[in-house]
Computed example of a mutant assay.
Amino acid sequence: MRGSLIALRAIALREAARFVRQRGRFLSALVRPLVWLLVFAAGFRAALGLSITPPYETYITYEIYIVPGLCGMILLFNGMQSSLSLVYDREMGSMRLLLTSPQPRWWLLLSRILASTLVSILQVAAFLGIAAGFGITFPALGYVTALPALALAGIMLGALGLALSSAIRQLENFAGVMNFVIFPMFFLSSALYPLWKMAESSAFLYGICAANPFTQAVEAIRFALYAQANLPALGWTGLWAAGFLALALWGYDPARGMLRRKT
């Protein structure tokens, strides 16, 4: 147990040090959702009507609605960028040193996901602080109850990125895969518009949005920010996290996974 905790601490410190050195990564993680919050929301406010649906008990502005989705955006992009660094580590050879550690491979990969999730949560906290400066706030207890939902969503998205990285041989290819994953997951979700609005437009797209793992993560965060538990969303997010993690472990298993094809 002590050795496992030391490995987790070392991986977390390495991820944190990399994040501190890459200040542009931190700024881009904040600028991206802030552009949506302050620019796009102003245009969508008049075009998109919102009704009173849980967890909201009254009419809300569009800016308040999209904040949980933008929190999910930060988790999604950071999870993918962290996995992108794994592809880079594999090309440079440092990934091999990590996987030859005496610690179990599954623990090393899980530690990498946990470290990435911690960095993502810090980014979300900074974003929520800036949003509060613009008058977009949530119940005080909600900032605390949102932490488990953010952690679960971060683990799910980090595991997805890890699974994708196991199947990519070159850094350039992973950047293309990210575009085919990030944007469909984000736009075909409840991050920018409620699902009932999508149902009015297309039943087919509504089904895709409802089945989207990112939708479940966003809804879990949305309810948690109001100190409420959306048990179905939390359950589905946990199931998707377990599935993606199992796929990642299989992909990084040299005997059976994707890494075997590269040797």
Score class of each variant (00 low, 15 high):
210 A>C: 02
186 F>R: 00
182 I>G: 01
140 A>Q: 12
169 R>L: 14
152 L>A: 11
193 Y>V: 15
166 S>M: 13
167 A>C: 12
192 L>K: 03
215 T>S: 10
152 L>F: 04
177 V>K: 02
152 L>N: 03
137 T>G: 03
174 F>Q: 02
198 M>T: 15
168 I>G: 00
136 I>Q: 11
219 E>G: 00
197 K>P: 01
148 P>K: 09
182 I>M: 09
207 G>Y: 09
220 A>Q: 00
169 R>W: 12
138 F>C: 09
178 M>V: 15
176 G>A: 10
215 T>L: 01
177 V>R: 00
188 L>Q: 00
170 Q>P: 00
161 G>T: 11
152 L>C: 09
150 L>N: 01
183 F>A: 08
182 I>C: 05
197 K>T: 13
148 P>H: 05
184 P>S: 06
207 G>A: 14
165 S>M: 13
157 L>D: 04
218 V>M: 00
190 S>V: 08
140 A>D: 05
154 G>Y: 01
186 F>H: 02
157 L>S: 05
209 C>H: 00
147 L>C: 07
203 A>K: 12
199 A>M: 13
147 L>T: 06
153 A>T: 15
136 I>L: 15
174 F>M: 02
192 L>G: 03
200 E>F: 11
147 L>P: 01
209 C>V: 14
153 A>R: 03
214 F>N: 06
202 S>N: 13
200 E>Y: 12
205 L>K: 03
174 F>I: 09
196 W>K: 11
138 F>P: 02
156 M>K: 00
161 G>A: 06
147 L>E: 03
198 M>A: 10
142 G>A: 13
167 A>E: 14
190 S>C: 02
151 A>M: 13
158 G>N: 09
146 A>E: 02
170 Q>N: 10
185 M>A: 09
174 F>Y: 09
187 F>Q: 07
162 L>M: 15
152 L>T: 10
176 G>D: 10
183 F>V: 15
212 N>L: 01
185 M>D: 02
152 L>M: 14
182 I>Y: 02
196 W>D: 13
153 A>Y: 03
153 A>P: 07
180 F>G: 06
185 M>C: 09
205 L>F: 08
194 P>C: 09
197 K>N: 13
154 G>W: 05
144 V>S: 00
215 T>D: 01
161 G>E: 03
143 Y>P: 03
154 G>C: 08
162 L>T: 15
181 V>I: 14
153 A>V: 08
139 P>V: 08
213 P>W: 02
192 L>R: 11
159 A>E: 08
220 A>L: 00
198 M>R: 05
203 A>Q: 14
177 V>S: 02
164 L>A: 11
170 Q>K: 14
203 A>P: 06
